[in-house]
C-alpha cells in the first residue's frame, strides 16, 4: 500500500510553468491523497455493492423463473404486484416490531450490563467474558439450543413451573413468538454492544461524578445528566449497527418459527428469501430487496440527522 504515499504526487508533477503558481498546491495534493486513500474502498463498493445492486434493480423489472430458464422483461409489473400484495402489510408490521423490539431491548440490556460491569467489583472480567461468549458461538447451534429451551415442555417453562407460573407456549403463540425471537437474538449479540458501552463508560472522567456528588445529585440524575450525554456518540453508533443488523436477520427466524404462527414473524428479509429462493420468484424477490434497501436507507439517514439533536460532542 506504500504507493499511495503522497510524495508520489510531486514526483510525477510536471515542472511549473513560468511564473504561475505550481499545479501541485498543497490543496490539490491533499485532494489526490484523499482519492487514493479511499480508492480501494470506493472501487470495492462500486464492484461488490453498487453493481450487484444495479443488477438487482434490473432483475426487479423482469419475470425470472430460474428453473424454466426464462427471463422476460415485464416493466413495472413486479412493483404493481408489490402494491397489491396482501402479505405486505403484515410483513412490514412484523419487520417494524422486530427491529424496534430488538434495538430497544439490545441497547437497554447492553447499557445495563455495561453499567454493572463498570462497578468496582472483583470478577467483572469473568462476567464480561460470560456475557460476550454467545457472540462467538455458531448462530445455528445457538438458535437450536434456544428453540429447545423455548418449547412448551422446554427448560424455560420448567423453570417457571418451579416458581408456580404456567409459562406460555413461547414459539407458538401469536404474541410470544416475536418476543422470543427478539430475545434469542438479543442474548446472542448484546455482548458486542456491551463492550462498546463499557469502553465508553470507562472513558467518562470520574471527576464529573465527584462534582455532581458534591452538588447533591442523585445516582439516577447523574446517570441521565452525565453518563448518557457523554456516551451518546456510542449510543448512536450501536443503534445504527443494531438497526441495520435487525433488518438483515433471518437465520433465527428460519430455525425458530419459519415465519409463523400465521405470518406473525415473517419479516421482510425472510419474506424476500421465501419469494426468491423458495418460490422461485427472483424478479419479485429483487423488488422486495429494493424495498428493504429503501427502508434501511431512510432509517439510517433519519438516525444520522437526529444525531445533531442529541449527540453530545459531535465534531
Amino acid at each position: 500500500m506504500t504507493r499511495t504515499d503522497t510524495r508520489v504526487g510531486p514526483a510525477t508533477a510536471r515542472p511549473t510553468l513560468g511564473r504561475r503558481r505550481p499545479y501541485w498546491t498543497g490543496r490539490r495534493r491533499d485532494q489526490l491523497t484523499g482519492y487514493l486513500f479511499i480508492a480501494p474502498q470506493l472501487v470495492g463498493s462500486a464492484v461488490f455493492v453498487i453493481l450487484p445492486l444495479a443488477l438487482v434493480v434490473w432483475y426487479s423489472l423482469h419475470e425470472w423463473n430460474v428453473l424454466a430458464g426464462t427471463f422476460t422483461f415485464v416493466g413495472a409489473d413486479n412493483y404493481a404486484t408489490l402494491a397489491d400484495d396482501p402479505n405486505l402489510g403484515s410483513v412490514l408490521r412484523a419487520t417494524g416490531l422486530f427491529s424496534v423490539g430488538l434495538v430497544v431491548l439490545n441497547l437497554a440490556l447492553a447499557l445495563l450490563l455495561a453499567v454493572l460491569l463498570n462497578q468496582k467489583l472483583r470478577g467483572t472480567t469473568l462476567f464480561r467474558t460470560l456475557f460476550f461468549s454467545p457472540v462467538v458461538v455458531s448462530l445455528v447451534a445457538w438458535t437450536i439450543v434456544w428453540g429447545f429451551l423455548l418449547q412448551d415442555n422446554g427448560g424455560i417453562n420448567g423453570l417457571l413451573d418451579t416458581i408456580g407460573v404456567a409459562g406460555p407456549n413461547w414459539l407458538r403463540g401469536e404474541g410470544t413468538a416475536m418476543f422470543s425471537v427478539v430475545v434469542v437474538q438479543v442474548f446472542k449479540n448484546v455482548g458486542l454492544n456491551m463492550v462498546l458501552f463499557l469502553a465508553a463508560l470507562q472513558a467518562v472522567p470520574g471527576e464529573l461524578y465527584e462534582a455532581a456528588e458534591v452538588d447533591g445529585a442523585s445516582r439516577m440524575r447523574q446517570f441521565w445528566r452525565i453518563t448518557v450525554p457523554l456516551i451518546s456518540p456510542t449510543i448512536l453508533l450501536t443503534s445504527i449497527i443494531t438497526v441495520v443488523g435487525s433488518l438483515q436477520v433471518f437465520a433465527q427466524i428460519a430455525v425458530l418459527t419459519q415465519g409463523g404462527p400465521g405470518t406473525s414473524t415473517t419479516v421482510l428479509v425472510y419474506y424476500l428469501y421465501q419469494q426468491a429462493f423458495q418460490f422461485h420468484h427472483f424478479g419479485y424477490g429483487a423488488t422486495l430487496s429494493i424495498v428493504l434497501f429503501g427502508i434501511v436507507l431512510a432509517l439510517t439517514v433519519l438516525q444520522w440527522q437526529l444525531r445533531k439533536r442529541w449527540v453530545f460532542h459531535e465534531s
Binding site: 491533499d30 484523499g34 463498493s45 461488490f48 438487482v56 433488518l247 428479509v269 424476500l272 430487496s289 434501511v296
Partner: peptide
C-alpha cells in the same frame, strides 16, 4: 481528515454497502 471534492457524496455511496443484506446481492 482530508478535504476533497465530492467527499460527502462518496461517503454516502460507500455507506450504501452498510445497508444491503447479503441475501440481496
Amino acid at each position: 481528515r482530508i478535504r476533497f471534492r465530492g467527499q460527502n457524496v462518496l461517503f454516502l455511496v460507500v455507506l450504501a454497502g452498510l445497508l444491503i443484506p447479503s441475501e440481496v446481492t
